[in-house]
Computed example of a mutant assay.
Amino acid sequence: MTITDSTTTASPVDVLNTFFEKLGAGDLPGLLDVIDENVDWKAAGDPRVPWTGQRHGRAAAGDFLASLGQYTEPVSFTVDRVLGDADTAVAVGAFAHRVLGTGKTFESEFVIQIGVVDGCIVRYRIFEDSYAVGQAFLPDNQG
């Protein structure tokens, strides 16, 4: 008798597509399911923006994701392309969000790069127009 392993691990492209699906649905628990317990998470940018900076661990990544909904509302979000190899996926797209505290809208193209091990995100990087994001958080008399 031959025993074969019938379990398959999702490809990095599949993981990133699932991430976007859960993000679009506002499914934070579903998002956390594809994030490794020890994820290395980074969103560079203006320190006045609540979600910027380096984070470590699933709970910290969850804080990042929750803060998006706490401080902004989505206006638009498109993914133009997702590419990947054995352990990395990259998405290219654009978004616009409105900052709830100022009413200002910011727009940016983005690149998200993830590293994946065993079907979970172990490394997350987002590259966006962090200047535009920071300006949208400033009151009118400061921007």
Rank of each mutant, 00 (worst) to 15 (best):
Y131A: 15
V34W: 01
P29E: 03
T88Y: 04
L138K: 09
E21I: 08
S67A: 15
R98L: 13
S67R: 04
N17Q: 15
V99D: 02
A10W: 04
G45A: 04
A60V: 03
D40K: 09
Q70S: 13
Y124S: 03
T18H: 07
Q142P: 01
D40P: 07
W51K: 05
V75G: 13
D40F: 10
D46P: 08
G115F: 03
D85K: 05
I3E: 11
D80V: 12
F64D: 08
M1V: 12
D33H: 05
N38L: 10
P12A: 04
F95S: 12
V13G: 06
H56E: 06
E73F: 05
D36G: 11
T4C: 08
V116R: 00
G53W: 06
S108T: 15
T9M: 10
V117P: 00
I35N: 01
P47T: 08
G45M: 00
A60L: 04
D87H: 09
S130G: 11
T8C: 06
G53M: 04
F19S: 02
G134F: 03
T7H: 09
D87I: 03
A89N: 09
D80R: 12
V34Q: 05
G30T: 02
Y71A: 14
V92E: 15
L68N: 00
I3V: 14
T9P: 02
A96Y: 00
R98Y: 07
I114E: 05
V75R: 10
A43D: 11
T52W: 00
L32T: 09
E37S: 02
L100P: 06
V49W: 05
D118E: 14
Y71F: 15
V116F: 06
T105S: 11
S6A: 11
L31S: 08
H56A: 10
H97R: 12
A136R: 00
L138Y: 04
L23M: 14
G143P: 00
S130P: 06
G26M: 10
E37F: 01
V122Q: 10
V75D: 11
R55L: 09
V34P: 06
V90H: 03
P74G: 13
S6Y: 10
E37C: 03
T8N: 10
T4Y: 04
L83N: 05
I114W: 01
P50M: 06
D5S: 12
S11A: 13
D46T: 06
A94W: 04
I126Q: 11
T102P: 10
W41A: 00
A61E: 01
V39K: 00
